[in-house]
Design a binder for these strands. Structure first.
Lengths: 329, 329
DNA sequence: GTGAAAGCGCTAACAA
DNA sequence: TTGTTAGCGCTTTCAC
């Protein structure tokens, strides 16, 4: 265990002032070329690494940003994180990922920790029912909200505009002859829960399909809820098709169908939400609502690094992806 | 934009010494209860957040750890990251994720950045052909290598013991009558590339199936290579089954099959590597080599936070997961 | 071209 | 119980 290598230790080693070392290492012009080279060589030999904390203390901004997600297993979030990580890498930002599990306490703590390390900004999927970043009294961090809009918060927000896609999903199912179409989505604590349900109903009306209140399910947007409601729907057999209103719910519903041995593209038609790669491979291709994840991620980074982004809402349009499904047989 | 709230500003505000504030906030016993409460209240009102960098400067260790992955879209890595993030959260560690894209430059830079922020440790999937953490001359970080063993590095390493599973995969295919079994895996730059190929060949020999050198493919362990080789295999039609030797290759090979409209569970049998949830749903269930991701992740965190873990190799056994596939018909 | 001093926020050690 | 001092690693400012 050798001592930590600092500019002072290098200076001592070379018998010069630590300031000369500092200047030499940061490429300051007024340093004798030979001095500079001597310093740089010695630094390399000794394995000097700049102490980021020291710079932070001097008021310099960190190159750290945060990302708060419910989880990172769902391919939607995984792809978002992947794109964002690459975008950060490109800007030499370091990305700290906190998983909230959609739990308010975890969210609060994650924000606190990011504040402590003086993170430059944070992109977050707000936990349902939380006040979001409002809990950050002194907000040195710039906050970008993703997917969901939380409370009265005045942070820029990136939303998915899925109204047309959801209505299209209903129209698509109606065209295929379905008249008993179920829906599983987030409940009204989430702005997206409200709007998606509204879009679904609008779709029913536009398609001339009667609304069946007993086939409308809302709850917390988790895979478990998705699976549970789907089992219910399959169990009582009243519905012949189903539309999902969220990426977690979609995966949950799908897994419940597969577990029950029911094809999601068979006579019972499922329309998923989000477009993980494997949806294309399930039973001849699952029809789903595609979300432009990569574009969301780039916009998120762009907003986060912006000096002081106005608290605007940025919408990205989702699109219905119709797939053939099982060949009729 | 108000001034930054520090213990000194609170002290000024209350007309006391900043040390008293420090003690009050950190729960030091010898502070008058009323003083402490006054300080804590004021701190809360003002929105004080501790400055992590200041503590780091004083030699305190950061609560930051790093994770280096090729990507985070592959469900294997995503699940690893998810589990590790939760484990870190539980130990109030912050997790910085760097994606290397299996590129040496990115790896080097990521390690450098983690060093700069004084990360406590790092879990990394070494880039093929790199010297791994050897480039870290002064290693204040504890390093844990994952999945692959890199160079002559003396860091603890977590490996998957897939010998039996791979041999089992070949035996399984042989039992189904296959005599022309192809293999796609990583090349010999990777220790795992070598050992998996060896296991595959041992499996052939044990099953009494002749080895066909022209059906053995190795390359960089990416989805692209997997897809490309798979197209080749399907194109020339010499093989009737294929075993994958890596999670990326497996996904790539699968996507190429699906794109070609060939069922991976049909007459041509694919054995995958890794067990993302959807493998169970593809064509009646894809037979694959299951890896205990969650256990790997927990071990990784355990080793990383350990004082000075011996550079041991920790092996976790993979298991062949046989699935029915399409019903014969 | 080089050096000395000061200060970022915090706490250990000593002083009162 | 409370206060003062010093120093962690670094760069900006001013002197030489």
């Amino acid at each position: 265990m050798s001592e930590r290598v600092t500019i002072k230790s290098i200076a001592r080693d070379l018998g010069i002032s630590h300031m000369t070392v500092s200047r030499a290492l940061s490429g300051h012009p007024s340093v004798l070329k030979e001095t500079r080279e001597a310093v740089q060589n010695r630094a390399r030999e000794l394995g000097y690494v700049k102490h980021a904390a020291a710079n932070v203390m001097r008021g310099q901004t960190t190159r750290i940003v945060g990302l708060l997600l419910p989880n990172i297993v769902n391919e939607f979030y995984a792809r978002f994180a992947n794109t964002m990580a690459l975008a950060c890498e490109a800007q030499s930002l370091q990305l700290i990922i906190h998983l909230t599990g959609d739990e308010a306490g975890a969210e609060r703590q994650a924000l606190a920790r990011l504040n402590e390390v003086q993170a430059q900004g944070v992109v977050m999927v707000p936990v349902p029912g939380s006040d979001g970043a409002m809990t950050l009294k002194p907000r040195p961090m710039s906050v970008v909200q993703l997917i969901r809009q939380s409370g009265a918060d005045a942070a820029p927000t990136i939303l998915v505009d899925d109204d047309q896609a959801l209505q299209g999903a209903v129209a698509h199912l109606a065209e295929k002859g379905h008249r008993a179409i179920a829906y599983i989505g987030a409940d009204s604590r989430l702005s997206s829960g409200q709007s998606r349900l509204a879009s679904f109903r609008a779709g029913l009306e536009r398609a001339g399909v009667a609304e069946r209140p007993e086939l409308l399910f809302t709850g917390t947007p988790t895979a478990e809820i998705g699976a549970q409601r789907m089992r219910q729907v399959l169990g009582d057999g009243a519905a012949t098709a189903l539309v999902c209103g969220g990426v977690e719910i979609s995966n949950g519903a799908l897994s419940a169908m597969m577990a029950a041995g029911v094809s999601p593209t068979g006579p019972f038609d499922l329309v998923g939400y989000g477009d993980p790669s494997f949806y294309a491979w399930i039973g001849g291709g699952l029809t789903t609502i595609g979300v432009p994840v990569e574009r969301l991620a780039h916009k998120a980074v762009e907003l986060m690094v912006a000096a002081s982004p106005p608290p605007r809402i940025h919408r990205f349009e989702a699109a219905l992806i119709v797939r053939p499904g099982s060949p009729p047989g």
